[in-house]
Design a protein around this nucleic acid. Structure first.
Length: 279
DNA sequence: AGCCAGGGTCTGC
DNA sequence: GCAGACCATGGC
């Protein structure tokens, strides 16, 4: 059980619904530990987080004070200064998109590490959210370093590049094991390089990501959106195809221009809420 | 038992 | 290019 000490830090959360944000399918690196507290990792870091009236309370899992660098990282991760509130208000100028936003008003688009995102969404293919989360957790537990308090961080590309698919058997990732190894090896070799991807146009970066075995259009788009900050990219899975055909047959409304990927988050939440027994 | 899960690969046309 | 089988695993 996580107990916050005086070394906890508070971020201005700007209307964030922490639980909805962490479990809407954009990240698989968090778990509830009780009492409204969540434990999550990003790259080498691990934190406890809880939503309070005055903001988002964060504390290192090691209970060591958060450094300035850590704080800056988590501010970026939670998009504290990202201006998402203002964008949502603009989304709401469109009636249908506004309804989507209001179905999950506290969800925020997280800025996640590239490698975490790449592997997580390779795991996501032909899979469901609870099992994806389980595989990601076993990936961290099996190959990650202690990030403090016994919580294991996301493994490095180098660590996984030294593995064979058979070494990944404990993850029970099935046919995806060899995809994970291929991705780790290409990143470790520099064949896939975050800085190079960052310098590319969306389409070029997408093509580069699809050179990885097990990365097709959908996974590449998720990596672009969630791991590389390409907020105009819209990953199209079966849910989104269904939702777009039904709600936006002519494409995303003009209010979402440049931020179609952010809009997609709310459309996804809306259509899935409806699919689970609403409407 | 059979179907589905935020897809992708591989093969055959 | 494009359809169709196949891919491990687990929940319902």
């Amino acid at each position: 059980m996580a107990v916050f000490t005086k070394s906890a830090a508070v971020l201005d959360s700007a209307g964030i619904d922490l639980e909805a944000t962490l479990f809407c399918g954009q990240t698989f690196s968090w778990r509830a530990v009780g009492g409204g507290v969540f434990c999550g990792t990003a790259g080498p870091r691990a934190v406890y987080a809880r939503a309070e009236d005055n903001g988002l309370v964060l504390e290192n899992c090691s209970h060591a004070p958060l450094t300035g660098e850590d704080l800056a990282f988590w501010r970026g991760y939670f998009a504290v200064d990202g201006g998402q509130q203002a964008l949502l208000e603009r989304f709401c100028e469109d009636e249908t998109l506004g309804a989507c936003v209001r179905s999950a008003p506290g969800v925020r688009l997280l800025n996640q590490p590239f490698f975490d995102t790449l592997l997580s969404f390779i795991i996501s293919q032909n899979n469901n959210i609870p099992r994806i989360t389980g595989i990601v957790e076993r990936l961290r537990e099996t190959f990650g370093e202690d990030a403090g308090g016994g919580v294991r961080a996301f493994p490095t590309a180098q660590r996984l590049a030294a593995c064979t698919p058979e070494d990944l058997a404990p993850l029970r990732a099935g046919f995806r094991a060899r995809y994970l190894v291929d991705a780790a090896r290409q990143v470790a070799k520099g064949r896939v390089d975050e800085a190079k991807l960052a310098a590319m146009e969306d389409g070029e970066a997408r093509g580069a990501l699809m050179q990885i075995t097990g990365v097709g259009p959908k996974v590449a788009d998720c990596v672009l959106l969630y791991g590389l900050g390409r907020h105009g990219v819209v990953p199209m899975d079966v849910w989104m195809k269904r939702a777009m055909a039904q709600a936006f047959p002519g494409g995303m409304p003009k209010e979402a221009t440049g931020y179609e990927g952010l809009a997609q988050l709310y459309v996804f939440c809306w259509v899935r809420a409806a699919g689970r027994g609403g409407q």
